[in-house]
Write a protein that binds this DNA or RNA. Structure first.
Length: 256
DNA sequence: ATGGTAGTCTAACTA
C-alpha cells in the first residue's frame, strides 16, 4: 500500500500536476493540503475518472485538506475533536484498515507572534487527539505538511534555521517530539539518515534552484506499522515541472 | 532578510 502526501498550494492551479502524478505513481492513498477551494468546487469527478474517491474539507483562499483513495474512505473525521477552529486543516479517515490523519499544520509566521501561539496551541490539541486516536486505531499513519523541520539534517542552513526561527524553533521541535512519543516514527528516517533531503523550497529567492530547502512534509507511522514500512521517500520530480507547487510529494510503502 | 515569488483576488493577506 503506497500512501503519499502533497501540499499542492491551490488544487485549482495544480490539478493537472496531481492528475499526472496519480497516473504515473498510482498511490493507493494521497492526502493533499492547501487545496484553497470551497467544497462545492472540489474536482471529485475529475479525480474519480482516474479511479480515486475523495473526502475533503476546504475554504476560500486558504487551507483546505483532502484524502484521495482507490478504495472508499470510512469513518471520516473533519477537524480536531473539541478544538474549535475555523481553519480547515485536518481530515482523517480509515482506508483499507489503516487510519489516515492528514494534517496541514499551522505555519506560525514568526516566533512570538499570535500565529505562532496559535500553532503551539493547535499542536497541543493535535497531541491530545492523536493520543486517543492511536489507542482506537493501532494502524495509524499521520502525514501532511508539518511546517516543522525535525532536525538540522532537514534544513539547508542550520545557522539560519535555528532554535529561534520559525519551522525550527525549540518549542516547535518539542511539540513535534511529543507527537513521536505517542508511538509514531518518521518513516523517512527509518530508511535514510542523510542530510539534505527536502520536501519544500521557498518560491522567494529561488530556493529550489539554489538547493535551499527544508524537509517539513512528513509521514509518521505507528509502532504497529513500523516493521511493515518497507520504503519511504521524497519525489522531487513534480517540483521541476512547469508552474510547480512549492512542496513536492512524500510517500511510504506499507506491506499491508 | 525592512528582502524575494506565488496564489487568491484586484488590496492585502498568507506562506
Amino acid at each position: 500500500m503506497k500512501i503519499a502526501s502533497w501540499n499542492v498550494n491551490s488544487l485549482n492551479v495544480r490539478l493537472p500536476h496531481v492528475e499526472e502524478w496519480l497516473k504515473s505513481r498510482q498511490p493507493d492513498v494521497v492526502v493533499l493540503q492547501e487545496t484553497k477551494m470551497e467544497d462545492h468546487k472540489f474536482p471529485d469527478d475529475a479525480l474519480a475518472s482516474l479511479g480515486y474517491r475523495s473526502v475533503f474539507v476546504g475554504q476560500k483562499t486558504y487551507n483546505g485538506v483532502a484524502i484521495l483513495s482507490k478504495v472508499s474512505a470510512k469513518e471520516e473525521q473533519i477537524g480536531i475533536p473539541g478544538f474549535d477552529d475555523e481553519q480547515k486543516r485536518v481530515i482523517a479517515a480509515t482506508v483499507n484498515g489503516i487510519r489516515i490523519v492528514n494534517l496541514y499544520v499551522v505555519n506560525g509566521q514568526d516566533v512570538g507572534t499570535d500565529k505562532y501561539d496559535y500553532k503551539l496551541r493547535w499542536l497541543d490539541a493535535v497531541h491530545g487527539w492523536l493520543g486517543e486516536e492511536i489507542k482506537k486505531h493501532p494502524n495509524l499513519v499521520v502525514l501532511g505538511d508539518f511546517n516543522i523541520a525535525p532536525d538540522e539534517r532537514d534544513v539547508y542552513d542550520p545557522k539560519v534555521w535555528n532554535d529561534n526561527h520559525i519551522l525550527t524553533s525549540a518549542a516547535e521541535r518539542t511539540a513535534y517530539k511529543r507527537l513521536l512519543d505517542l508511538g509514531l516514527h518518521d518513516s523517512f528516517r527509518l530508511h535514510n539518515d542523510e542530510a539534505g533531503h527536502y520536501s519544500w523550497w521557498d518560491f522567494r529567492s529561488g530556493g529550489f534552484q539554489r538547493g535551499n530547502g527544508l524537509r517539513i512534509d512528513l509521514v509518521l507511522v505507528s509502532d504497529a506499522l513500523k516493521s511493515k514500512c518497507s520504503a519511504a521517500g521524497i519525489d522531487r520530480d513534480p517540483r521541476t515541472w512547469e508552474r510547480p507547487s512549492d512542496h513536492t510529494p512524500v510517500w511510504v510503502d506499507l506491506d499491508v
